[in-house]
Design a protein around this nucleic acid. Structure first.
Length: 462
RNA sequence: GCUCCGGUAGUGUAGUCCGGCCAAUCAUUCUGGCCUUUCGAGCCAGUGACUCGGGUUCAAAUCCCGGCCGGAGCACCA
């Protein structure tokens, strides 16, 4: 099995499906998992040097460490060799039609003038291509299929073109001016790497039919294939790698791990666990149906994994101060977790606390509230309340609400969410949870990213 | 325009190849209940689907034909 990305950006939720599903088959049935970088386009989908490592990192994180890593840009001489074989056999030809000319002929099921000249001539022209004697977009090597094929997508397709922009990898640089297109590179590699099965997007369905011509000419057997449909994520808008890159460069996003992005780096930073992602994609299966999915399932899986480990804390957003009269100073000790015994936290309270403004908005004097783990209060005015006893039962019977709160000397906390930033105040203990996922009660799970100069958290999910 | 795929509850999925055991699986969402000093977790219950029309058959989600809807390919992108 293989996963064959173009490293022109970091792995996203979409790539994850390829990584997880392919690697899962290997785990289940044996065989090798190979990651092959299809980095044969130095211009339109120019690879990013950092992204090679990002893919490897993320694969490892996803428990999908490849048995082998191949970079297509290292292997151009191999592709040239097979191209030559095909030319000699009369199965490929050098075509100097313009794109528009060829399209017109192809749509009319007509061969172009170059198609039927002698292989020796094409071999000579191929040599000139490799020598750099042709400019970009003036020449292409085509694979002969059936120019009258009823499906226009299968008629004589391009296998190599001229690109004079240097490749971003320094070890490749400007070594080559003739680059293979995906259908050719992939066809050769899948055979050479001993691929028995291919699972990929259904946008590549016609690739199989095109590549089969090459396999037939070379006497090879095509791997077994299956395809999955288009994936739309309604939690994220439409995005493309190049579009994201622009938005990041313009400062719209903070980087490739901005919590608003569907990249794996962002999800990791938000505290999504790799096993949740694996389960999510394995459960999704490999149907050819187009899916429009919501991340609820992923979040639900993740919640099951993190809940037992997530310590509870109070975090108050849109904080407002509430003065409480008649209460004694005290230190409360709420537990870290409601069902798992992991000790307690200590919070000192004098005559005031911070609460969420939305909780007391509209409250009238006389309304009863329970400050969770502390005591009952009765509202007496705008921003003021009075102590109303310790007995939880009165709240349960009287129907007052239980709300959370924060000490007035708490620490500032900023949470980065897919919908923007939320600022507030929280317990001091949060600062000790860096790199862990905690649950802010009545808010959601948050991964604490840093605590220097105020706590910054990445919102995981509710 | 030509060609190729697909269509099971709000969402994803099992079942479709080899018709009956499918008044249709699982997960999630939503609703309600229990429990609980979280609007969290756990437990319980409920709502909710075979795209439509025809055909074959004793019997169709499953096979055939047509319509409708959705997606993809027809690049010197991957």
């Amino acid at each position: 099995m293989r996963f064959a990305p173009n490293p022109n950006g970091p792995p996203t939720l979409g790539s994850t499906r390829g990584i997880v599903v392919n690697s899962e088959y290997v785990k289940k049935y044996g065989g090798k998992f190979i990651i092959r970088f299809d980095d044969t386009d130095p211009v339109t989908k120019r690879p990013m040097l950092e992204a090679y490592d990002w893919y490897l990192e993320d694969c490892k994180w996803l428990d999908a460490e490849p048995d082998e890593v191949v970079m297509a840009s290292d292997r151009l001489p191999i592709y040239y060799e097979y191209a030559e074989t095909l030319i000699k056999g009369g199965h490929a030809y050098v075509c100097t039609c313009t794109q528009a000319e060829f399209k017109q002929l192809k749509d009319a099921k007509q061969a172009c003038p170059h198609r039927d000249t002698a292989p020796e001539e094409h071999l000579r022209e191929w040599g000139r291509m490799l020598a750099g004697e042709y400019e970009e977009r003036t020449v292409v090597l085509r694979i002969k299929t059936d120019i009258k094929h009823k499906d226009p997508a299968l008629r004589d397709w391009g296998a190599f073109r001229v690109v004079k922009t240097p490749h971003p990898r320094p070890e490749v640089g400007n070594k080559y001016v003739v680059w293979p297109l995906l259908d050719f590179e992939g066809a050769i590699e899948d055979h050479l790497l001993g691929m028995t099965h291919i699972i990929r997007g259904k946008d590549l369905m016609d690739s199989e039919r095109r590549q089969k011509y090459v396999y037939d000419y070379l006497g090879w057997t095509y791997p077994r294939t299956s395809h999955w449909g288009r994936v739309k994520m309604h939690d994220f808008g439409k995005f493309s790698t190049s579009g994201l890159r622009e938005a990041i460069e313009s400062g719209e996003y903070s980087g490739w791990d901005d919590p608003r992005l569907p990249t794996l780096r962002a999800l990791r930073r938000r505290g999504i666990r790799p096993d949740a992602l694996r389960k999510f994609f394995i459960d999704m299966g490999v149907g050819e149906t187009d899916v429009s999915l919501s991340l609820d399932n992923l979040y639900a899986e993740n919640r099951k994994l993190i809940d037992a480990d997530a310590n509870r804390y109070f975090f108050v957003w849109e904080p407002v101060k509430l003065e409480i009269s008649g209460a004694e100073s005290t230190v409360v000790k709420p537990s870290m977790h409601p069902t798992v015994d992991r000790g307690v936290r200590e919070i000192a309270v004098e005559q005031s606390v911070m609460v969420c403004s939305q909780d007391i908005r509209g409250a009238k004097p006389g309304d009863l509230f329970r400050l969770k783990d502390l005591y009952n209060i009765r509202i007496t005015g705008e921003g003021t309340a009075e102590f109303a006893g310790h007995d939880i039962e009165t709240i349960k019977k009287g129907g007052g609400r239980i709300i959370h709160w924060s000490p007035v000397d708490g620490i500032p906390v900023k949470v980065l969410t897919p919908d923007g930033e939320v600022e507030g105040i929280g317990e001091a203990g949060i600062a000790a949870e860096v790199d862990k996922v905690v649950q802010f009660e009545r808010y959601g799970y948050v991964r604490i990213d840093g605590a220097d100069g105020g706590v910054v958290g990445y919102f995981t999910h509710k």
